[in-house]
Design a protein around this nucleic acid. Sequence first.
DNA 1: TTGGTTTGTTCAAAAAATTTGAACAATAAA
DNA 2: TTTATTGTTCAAATTTTTTGAACAAACCAA
Lengths: 298, 298
Amino acid sequence: MMTSSPITIEALVVLDAIEFRGSYAAAAEQLNKVPSALSYIVQKLEEQLNVTLFERQGRRSVLTPAGKHLLVEGRKVLSAMNTLSEQTQTIANGWETKISIACDSILDITPVFSVVGCFLEEHQNIEIDVQEEVMNGSWEALIEDKVDLVIGAPAPVPIQKGIRAIKIGELQQVLVVNKNHQLAQIKQPVNTLELAKFRSVVVHDSAQHEIPRTVNIIEGSRHFYVTSLNQKIAAITAGVGIGYLPKDLIQSLVENGELVIIALVDELPPQDLFIAWKITNKGKGLLRLRNLLSSHFS
Amino acid sequence: MMTSSPITIEALVVLDAIEFRGSYAAAAEQLNKVPSALSYIVQKLEEQLNVTLFERQGRRSVLTPAGKHLLVEGRKVLSAMNTLSEQTQTIANGWETKISIACDSILDITPVFSVVGCFLEEHQNIEIDVQEEVMNGSWEALIEDKVDLVIGAPAPVPIQKGIRAIKIGELQQVLVVNKNHQLAQIKQPVNTLELAKFRSVVVHDSAQHEIPRTVNIIEGSRHFYVTSLNQKIAAITAGVGIGYLPKDLIQSLVENGELVIIALVDELPPQDLFIAWKITNKGKGLLRLRNLLSSHFS
DNA sequence: TTGGTTTGTTCAAAAAATTTGAACAATAAA
DNA sequence: TTTATTGTTCAAATTTTTTGAACAAACCAA
């Protein structure tokens, strides 16, 4: 006879709120409860688990290591629960109540939003949640069911069955530097090996669990890590280092002279960009959205 | 305001039991309830989710596709919940669920793994995560709490209170070059100042935030940066430059004549290697692992 | 076909749980 | 010091859940 875990969803929600808001009082307000109700729920959990989760420090309660662990892992469970109920409703109704999209930050998001706008016009009661990811971060989000659709994820498509990807365009990346950078003085085209001398600006992969992949990282050179494409542009513009950027994105900065495009002996081939989804995902909204995207981008 | 999922653990347990036993009646018996109680719970879930989970076929209830999905995924959540409560209790008892170790790549990792193997034999449900770091990278990982233990980190121990380090051995580094390298022709012992003429191969410090520190870097010379010790060996073997390497590690390459050890006027003192941890970290698993390591390495 | 069973559901009553608000002690801020 | 805020306790109020009897549907065997 397998005795089920004493942890309830309710309790995890309460734990989450207490940590998030910083006090029982504030958490109670958020949950439309009264502080004593939370006290009751926490105590029940502590008793059934036989573990103290909060240590009272003065008039403030602070999580014990065990409590912290329960919270951190519990939040993952809560998130899984949310996607589970979304998925269940989607299967039952055919249409989803919410569609989550990951957009790779390498992509200009404006035309995507205009298509999404059309979709929302058609389907007033579907919510859309867009998040920005970098490189493997978008694939990871798809694989882990954090999103239903990724837009603009770069090749290679993960070798994993159950993922369908179609190309929606390609992106020409060029090497750019600040106008005063040493590299701007050298006569072009430059050999790729020469680049090893300079510090390069790299966007840190947003993937958390998968082995981060790095493309276009200039081998052997020193790196400067940033966490978004905008930071990368800013860093290069500020002269911190060199790096590859999408040609379209830096057009204006090149025109006003801030950035200089460096010609290479071996020009990078254009990078393929994909939209991708799981074939197990049969949602009608997803299908419709994909069709809209395909017809706007080809 | 994020509204939490209507699915409860209780409901998932009921769903699981109904499917497993094949009927409400049998499931009720298993759960020490009465059939009507299960009926109530299922109906509540169906209502709140606005999804029918069971289709009544004759006197028997059968899962709809949505119900099947909820059950299959729900079982994963249930299992996660069980391990979560176990883990929480484990932590409360002073043990850890996972121990992260940084190994300096200068160290031969094989004997470490054999000790870790013993430890895992004793503690089947503790996970171990080993990562390789270089120079300050391992100290940084410890300071920033990315790992619980570093093994084989080189002196000096960071002057920072809260870190305990004990020496586990020393490492003799020698200067080596490819057999055809210019330096191999000069009469030995060589004065350290002479080395400035040659390009030296340097492992890039894996530290990200601290100011990277460089030991054994030949001052003033030109550098070639690589990202791992293996790359360093390969680069030196290929004749790209000169560099210091642990004596034991290049024994075979010296014997077959590929590499040549260069005697120096001022021979490097042997470098002390440490295991280190934070004294705030009171984990019993860490203590046990440290004891195992100490007894195997001294 | 016809009884005898078994199944899940419904319902009102009973039991158990959660929630509430007032009172309180401990602490921090003024 | 006073004042305000925090989390806890407790009995009462409220809500939720459980119960068992009654019931209708469906299966089974003869």
